[in-house]
Design a protein around this nucleic acid. Structure first.
Length: 164
DNA sequence: GACGTGATTGTTCTT
DNA sequence: AAGAACAATCACGTC
């Protein structure tokens, strides 16, 4: 809060006039290295998801209906974004300050507004978390596809040797 | 009793 | 390049 003269905190865009040093983290935020295999696999996954959506053409107003899960319960779902992590934190605080408001809609609105007021430094923290999660998600997706291609019909849910 | 709805932004995929 | 879709959460409405 030392410098408040400059209120233009735009994580995106912005002219080169700003110090490039600050732009460094910004770039890394969305810099996720994805393997070609992962991308190709994504197509397959998407195709399956699409098929499911067709069955439930309910995304008119609400897109979050059945989604995926029936096809493969092990399929890695999209990890929450930075905003969601912030929302999780914000929700707790918001409920404490506004115990009357319990609906997520109200919280969502407030959170959205607050999110915009946050500075990049504050956001980058959540971005970092989201980035890591995405990296893990990509890895999980790779293995998921690999296993799927390897032996899809062979579902041995009995012996689940997961080593964390 | 159980499911869907609605609201928020971010990231990825699709065309 | 731009749009569409989905990610989590939780009280409320509907059947």
């Amino acid at each position: 809060m030392a410098k408040k003269t400059n209120d233009s905190q735009e994580p995106v865009s912005s002219s080169s006039t700003n110090a490039p040093e600050e732009a460094s983290p910004r770039r890394m935020v969305l810099r996720v290295r994805r393997s070609e295999a992962t991308k190709r696999l994504s197509s397959l996954i998407r195709a399956e998801e699409k098929e499911k959506r067709v069955v439930s053409v309910k995304r008119s107003k609400t897109k979050q209906k059945k989604k995926s899960a029936k096809i493969d319960a092990k399929m890695p779902k999209k990890p929450p974004t930075a905003f969601f992590y912030f929302l999780e934190d914000f929700r707790k605080e918001f409920q404490e300050q506004n115990p009357e408001v319990k609906t997520m809609r109200e919280v969502g609105k407030a959170c959205g507004e607050k999110w915009k007021t946050l500075t990049y430094e504050d956001k980058v923290k959540y971005y970092d978390i989201a980035m890591e999660k995405r990296a893990e998600f990509d890895k999980a997706m790779s293995e998921y596809i690999k296993k799927k291609e390897s032996g899809e019909g062979d579902e041995t849910e009995d012996d689940e040797d997961y080593y964390i």
